[in-house]
Amino acid sequence: MKYLFDFFLAVSLNGLSYYIASFVLRNGLPIWQALIIGFSVVSLGALTEALGSPMWLIVLVPFPVGMFLLYSFLQVPVSQWFLTYLLTLAIYTVIHIPMSYFFDFHSLIPAWKLS
């Protein structure tokens, strides 16, 4: 049950990072599309981990999926998409630090254990 809770928490926080970045840059990504990206990225990372892949691959594999889905949903020029993605990564990192440190939650970036 804890794994399921952690999975949905990771999907929510990951999707939230996409949504906030899009909101800040006024790209208009709806929350449901941000959650689809979050679900896809977290699911792919969990699947890669379940297959016993090395940690570098678990972290690397979800990136292209998140990038492609964000580009597909936004329908903006590449420069605007790239800026949105960079801001998403920054927000994602900022969310990860307190979650890892205070709540011992490492599912956002599995290989980056801060506490």
Rank of each mutant, 00 (worst) to 15 (best):
L114Y: 01
K113D: 02
I95W: 08
T84G: 05
L29F: 06
Y85Q: 08
Q80P: 00
W32P: 01
P64Q: 13
K113F: 03
L9M: 13
I58Y: 02
R26N: 13
I37A: 03
Y71K: 07
F8H: 14
T93V: 11
L16A: 12
L87Y: 02
V24R: 04
L69A: 07
T84F: 00
D6W: 03
A34F: 08
Q80R: 12
S72F: 14
A10L: 05
G38D: 08
R26G: 00
L13N: 03
V11T: 05
L4D: 03
L74W: 07
S40E: 01
L16E: 01
S100A: 12
Y92E: 04
I20E: 00
D6I: 04
L47G: 15
V11R: 03
L51V: 02
L35I: 09
F73T: 00
W81V: 11
Q80H: 10
T48F: 01
L4Y: 13
A10R: 03
M99F: 12
V65M: 09
T88C: 05
F102I: 10
P54Y: 07
S107E: 15
M99S: 08
N14L: 11
G66L: 10
P77C: 08
W112H: 10
L47F: 13
S100P: 01
P30C: 06
P77S: 09
M67L: 15
Q75W: 04
G38N: 08
M67E: 02
Y71S: 14
W32R: 10
F23W: 12
V65F: 09
L69P: 02
V94G: 08
P110M: 04
M1H: 08
F7H: 09
L60V: 09
G15Y: 00
L86K: 10
L29K: 01
W32E: 13
Y85G: 02
Q75E: 14
G28M: 11
V41W: 08
G66W: 00
I97W: 09
L69G: 01
S40C: 14
Y101T: 15
F39S: 08
V24K: 01
P110V: 08
L74G: 03
H106E: 14
F7T: 10
L29M: 12
T84D: 10
P62G: 06
S115E: 04
N14G: 13
I20Y: 05
